[in-house]
Simulated scan of single mutants.
Amino acid sequence: MNATPRTPHLDALRKDGFVKIPSLLSTQQLRRLRESCEQTTKQVRQGKWPYVRTVPKQYPPWHEWRPGDNIWGVQHLLHPDMAQRNAFAELYFSDEVLSIVKELVGLKDDEHGDDQLVMELFNLLVSPAERQDFELCWHRDDVRPDVTPENEAQQLKEKSPEGKQLHAQYNIALFDDASLIVVPGSHQRIRTDEERNAAPFEPNLPGQLVVEMKPGDAVFYDSNILHRGVYKGVDTSTDLGRMTLHGSIGLAGHGSERARQVLQHAVGQWIGRAQFDLEGSKGERAEAMRQRLVEMGSGEGLGYSLVG
């Protein structure tokens, strides 16, 4: 008789709303990705890449880069015009990442599990320049803060059936990173009165935890855990600051519910021409995942999860 598969990562995600994976990246992967992200960030700050997240805006829709913008994120690392896309695609479609994803969304870790994965988003989070600190307010990614407690409870139940989400979301740190702050367990419950009435940037919410990562570490987290980000600005002439890869991978067959969350980032505008130069089974996997994203549509008329 086959033993029931162990699911330590899913168990931690269900309990706490996040799970940290130490040393997900090898030394070689870390070195290559650092080089790719340094080149990409330099190009973006010179205005050579238009798809960015800019201070002080927190949520999509994002505007294209303009002179004077201070960025905290680089969008669309898998875009066909991204110079470093092959390095990013190698990681995004890798066994290291997808084996964890499959566990978290309830799939077998084999080629049959691959058949239900959907390409979603892959972006880069960076430190703002000019020593300008930047913070995200407390939020859940797809539950608006003004909903009633009853509606909040219903949405949390629908978005994580049986404690599993319809996608897996992660941060992978290339340098030391202590930017993500979470309230463990909050993905399973509505907000307390104190949380509901807290200031948007409350620095000391009861039970909060700073997720500290070393280079190469990853954290996978329930996107509707109560969380925020705190990004320390740096002098970019002397300091790289943080560089953290931020991605999500979906589970097929969930229509407009997941489509809105993904396509609000405008990935539907270019995914139709984004074939990947990957060899063998990894290339086949990437193309199949890309095609499932194409099938989700362009995103027109689906709206946005959050405002701000």
Rank of each mutant, 00 (worst) to 15 (best):
H76M: 06
L136Y: 10
D133T: 11
N197K: 03
V210W: 06
Q84C: 12
G253C: 02
L125V: 14
I172P: 05
S26F: 11
G272P: 10
S256V: 01
L278H: 13
E90S: 14
Y304D: 08
I71Y: 02
K159V: 13
R34M: 12
M1L: 09
P215D: 04
N197P: 02
K57S: 09
Q291W: 00
A89P: 08
R242C: 06
Q261G: 15
Q269L: 08
I100F: 12
K282V: 14
L240M: 14
D110K: 09
T54H: 08
R273G: 10
L78C: 08
R32Q: 15
K159G: 12
Q165Y: 11
E300G: 13
F18A: 09
V19H: 01
V262Q: 00
E279V: 10
S99W: 12
D109F: 11
P215K: 09
D222V: 03
I71K: 03
G247S: 10
E300Y: 13
E90Y: 01
H265Y: 12
Q84F: 07
V126G: 06
F93G: 07
V147F: 14
A198I: 01
D69V: 07
W270R: 10
Q84P: 03
S248M: 09
E202G: 00
P161E: 12
E279G: 11
K15E: 13
H227N: 11
L302P: 09
L166N: 15
P184N: 05
L226E: 03
Q208E: 07
Y51T: 03
L293Y: 12
A12M: 00
P80E: 12
Y59G: 06
L240D: 13
D69P: 05
P61H: 00
E195K: 01
V230Q: 15
D141N: 12
L174D: 13
H9F: 11
N123R: 04
G297A: 12
V267E: 15
D141V: 00
H63Q: 01
T41W: 13
G73I: 01
V52M: 08
R290C: 15
R31Y: 12
W270T: 09
M243R: 15
D239I: 06
S223K: 10
V262S: 12
V183T: 04
R131I: 04
H76W: 08
P215T: 07
Y51E: 07
D11V: 00
M296D: 11
S127E: 13
E162L: 11
E90M: 07
Q29V: 05
H167L: 14
Q188L: 07
D239F: 07
I190M: 11
K282I: 15
A129I: 01
C37H: 14
L104V: 08
A129D: 14
I190H: 02
E135D: 02
P67E: 10
P128W: 04
P80D: 05
L98C: 15
D114H: 14
T54I: 08
R228T: 05
P145G: 08
F18M: 04
D16G: 05
E152F: 09
D277Y: 10
L166V: 14
E135F: 07
A173G: 07
H227M: 06
P22F: 02
